[in-house]
Amino acid sequence: MQLKQVIIAHKAGDSLSRRWAEICAQQLEDRGCRILMGPSGPKDNPYPVFLASAVAPIDLAIVLGGDGTVLTAARHLAAEGIPILAVNVGGNLGFLTESFESFKDSEQVWDRLLEDRYAVQRRMMLQAGLYEGNRSQIERVSDRFLALNEMCIKPASADRSITSILEMEIDGEVVDQYQGDGLIIATPTGSTGYTISANGPIVHDGMKAITVTPICPMSLSSRPIVLPPGSVVSVWALGDYELNTKLWMDSVLATAIWPGQRVDIQMADCDAKFIILRENYSYYQTLREKLQWAGARIQYTNNHRN
Rank of each mutant, 00 (worst) to 15 (best):
G200L: 02
K290H: 11
R278D: 12
E22S: 09
Y131N: 02
S231T: 14
A128L: 11
L77P: 15
L51C: 01
G66V: 08
V141D: 00
A268E: 14
T97N: 00
C270H: 11
L126S: 10
Y241E: 14
N244P: 08
I196T: 07
G239D: 11
E242A: 13
Q121N: 14
L36Q: 09
F145M: 10
L85Y: 09
V6M: 08
L3D: 00
V263L: 04
V232T: 13
R297T: 02
G172R: 05
Q26E: 15
E115T: 12
D14Y: 03
P188G: 05
R122E: 15
D181S: 03
S221R: 15
L238G: 01
R144N: 15
E132P: 00
I23Y: 14
A272C: 00
D205R: 06
D14S: 03
R278Q: 11
A25N: 03
I202Y: 01
L96I: 04
I265S: 10
Q292S: 11
I84Y: 04
M249R: 12
M168G: 10
A54Q: 08
D205P: 15
S164K: 04
D30A: 12
A86N: 07
T163V: 15
E139K: 10
V109G: 09
W20A: 10
G295H: 04
L93P: 11
C33Y: 02
I276Y: 09
D111H: 13
A54K: 05
E150R: 05
A74E: 06
I62Q: 08
I138A: 03
A254H: 03
T286H: 05
P201D: 03
